[in-house]
Design a protein around this nucleic acid. Sequence first.
DNA 1: TTTCTGACCAAAACGTAATTTTGGTCAGAA
DNA 2: TTCTGACCAAAATTACGTTTTGGTCAGAAA
Lengths: 201, 201
Amino acid sequence: MKSSAKQQSTREAILDATDRLLARSGYKKMTIDDLAKEVGIGKGSVYLHFSSKEELVLSHIDRIIDRLQIKLSAIAEESAKPSARLRKMLEMRVLHRFDGVQHYTQSLNDLLSAIRPNFLARRESHFENEAQIFVAVIEEGQQNGDFAEGDARKIAESLVLATNSLLPFSLTTQELGERRDIEEKTRQIANLLLQGLIKRE
Amino acid sequence: MKSSAKQQSTREAILDATDRLLARSGYKKMTIDDLAKEVGIGKGSVYLHFSSKEELVLSHIDRIIDRLQIKLSAIAEESAKPSARLRKMLEMRVLHRFDGVQHYTQSLNDLLSAIRPNFLARRESHFENEAQIFVAVIEEGQQNGDFAEGDARKIAESLVLATNSLLPFSLTTQELGERRDIEEKTRQIANLLLQGLIKRE
DNA sequence: TTTCTGACCAAAACGTAATTTTGGTCAGAA
DNA sequence: TTCTGACCAAAATTACGTTTTGGTCAGAAA
């Protein structure tokens, strides 16, 4: 039996190569043969880790989101004020997503059109998971009196949703604009939202 | 010389027919011949009003936005409190856009991919124009002491941007979800944003 | 045994050449 | 002066033979 650590590292190597090839050629032109060659394994071995090309790319996206969630959770557990943590989480979330696909110059549409239904479903669940991380911080702020009362889950969903139009999705990072502008716009929205959360004297 | 009122009504009839055909067949399958037949005019007459198929469809979208801007301006001039007006404007904006393309079941992607560059450019300018309508109301609220001080233009852009992810764009209305849910989500976000705007005692 | 591989295959993608449809024009009708 | 539809080049579609590709699996490697 192969060590699961080794299995895991092969899996990671495949996903790393997927990222490179996706950036280089887009979804349709990226072939499993090329991918295997890039990783230095046999083609069949790719299918030991992923059941299909679509599943492979979806997993690659999942990995970006997993990493995001780890970073979000880390901030959520810091010791700063809840409002400061939320602000930081909102900004980091947008920039992480921006950076995660910055090198895909034109290929986002290609990818989206190829795997649309499953991708949209996952995207929805990613948002839900991300919102859940915000919930804990919001509840903390409510309990310590910083924030006004309210359904923490709904508030979390609103925070996420309100910054979603800044995420690369149908628009590539180029079409979205300069990274610094995205950052500034996110900060503006986050400020307004958080002012709204903070309890009035 | 033909009366400009008659010219205008033909133009409107063409745009009405464009809306119907776009809903029925999508951008690529909608032909100018069909369109002329639907309106009951000759094909060449279509080109008396629009210089190309792309321009035609762009004008159709412009019309949706023009109507939106008229409704936004109307609300902006009502006598309710600035915060109430802004809330109403934000909700109306999202629902107007939702209703404007609700009958395009699958064809938004088709349209987007066909006219992408010019469409994106216009979209950007639509947002800027919409934001400008918000500016006046925000400044009014700042002057009468309801709202905290701040760059009204930037605030307006934030309000618009924060609700943009609820607009049909790459996602069709079906993919966005139920109208009542969109309405609820918009209201949630608007509440949070406006709480953030309101001046603290 | 367990892990990995690449030859293999059906299906999809691609080239391409013949055919049809379509966006756009414009000479002349109304 | 306004409108039209026959007309045309270009683009889309079809038909079809060829190539490429996603996915499998019998057997090699470990």
